[in-house]
Amino acid sequence: MTTLQAPAHEYRDYAELLDDYYARGWTDGLPVVPPTPAAVEQFLAAAELAADTVLGAVPTREVVVTAEHAAINAVMAGCRPEYMPVVVAAVRAHLNEKANCHSVTGTLSGASQAVVINGPARLRLDVNCQAGCFGPGWRANATIGRALRLVVRNVCRAIPNFLDRASYSTPARYSFCFGEDEEGSSPWVPMSVERGVPVGTSAVTVHSVMTMSSALDLGSRTPEGVLDSVAAHIRTRGVATDEWLGIDNTVMLVMGPEHRRFLVEAGWSKDDARAYLFPRLKEGERPVRIGKPDGILIVGAGGPGMSETWVLFPHLAWAITEPVVPEPGGEP
C-alpha cells in the first residue's frame, strides 16, 4: 500500500471541517463524511488498490485520476467501504476516451452521468433496481452516484461556472445510480452480459444523459405497439452524435415491468426489440443518428403501475461498461 499523497487539513470538530470544505468548493452543497486517512485507507483496501493506481485521465484538463482521489470522494459521498470497487469501475468507465468527460461535464446542456449496476453486487450492496430506483432512499444508489459526481467536480474540475458551463444543470448531478432488475426481467440477458462481461460478474455502465423522458404508453398490449411508441418518442428528440463518436454511439431505454411483460410474454428478447426498433428509427427524412442496433441499450428496471419506458438520451459520449473488481463480498 502506498502512502497517501493528498494534503491533510486539521479541524477542531466536524462542523469546522464541513464549513471549510464547503468554503473551499469541495462539496456539492450537501454535508459530506470526513475523508480521514484511516477511512480512505480502508476504502483502498476494499478495492485492493494502491493509492497511486491511475484510474484514468482528462487530457484537456491535465488531470490524472488516482484510486486515492476516488477513495477520498467516495468517503465524502457517504459510501460504505464495500461500495468502493463499484465506484472505481464507474470512474474508469467515465474516464474512457469515448465517454468524453471533458464534454459531458462541461456542456451547456448540463448532462448527468447515469451509473447502471449489473450482477451480484446489486444484491450484495442493496442497490435498488425496482420501484423508486431513480430516486432517493437507498444508500448504495445515492452514494455511489454521488461519489462519481464528486470525483467529476473535485478531481476533474467540473465546477459550476468554471469548467462546468451548464445553463441550468440538473438534480441528477447530485446522484444518478440504479441497478438492472435482472430477476424481474428474466429471461432477458443483462445489459452487462450483452456488452461482453461474463455472467455472474458485476459491472457498471456509465451513460451520460443530456435529457431523459418517459415514453408513456398505457394502451398498447403488444411488443409492436409498445416499441412503436418508444420509437416515436426517440424520434421527437433524436440522438446527439458526430464523426468523432462514429457508429458506436448509444441511447438507453429503461423499460418498466408492464412494457417488459408485453415483450417477454410474446417471446421477444432484447435483440428482437432492437431489430424491430432500429429500422423504425432510421426511416424517413430525419433518421435518428444511431449507428447500429447494438447502440440501443435496453435495461429492465423500475416498479409497476406506469406502463412506461424511460429514454435516457445521450450527450456526446458512448455508454461504457466496466467490470467490478474485486466483487464486493468476494467471488459469487
Binding site: 497517501l4 493528498a6 494534503p7 491533510a8 487539513h9 486539521e10 479541524y11 477542531r12 470538530d13 466536524y14 469546522e16 471541517l17 471549510d20 470544505y21 469541495w26 470526513p34 475523508p35 480521514t36 486517512p37 480512505v40 488531470v63 490524472v64 485520476v65 482521489h69 477520498i72 470522494n73 465524502m76 464528486l150 473535485n154 478531481v155 476533474c156 474540475r157 465546477i159 468554471f162
Partner: peptide, 17 residues
Amino acid sequence: MTLIGLDPTSGPLPEPV
C-alpha cells in the same frame, strides 16, 4: 480531539483567463 480531513481535489485550480 482534532479531525484530519484529506484534500479531495487534483490540485489548485489554474487562474481563469
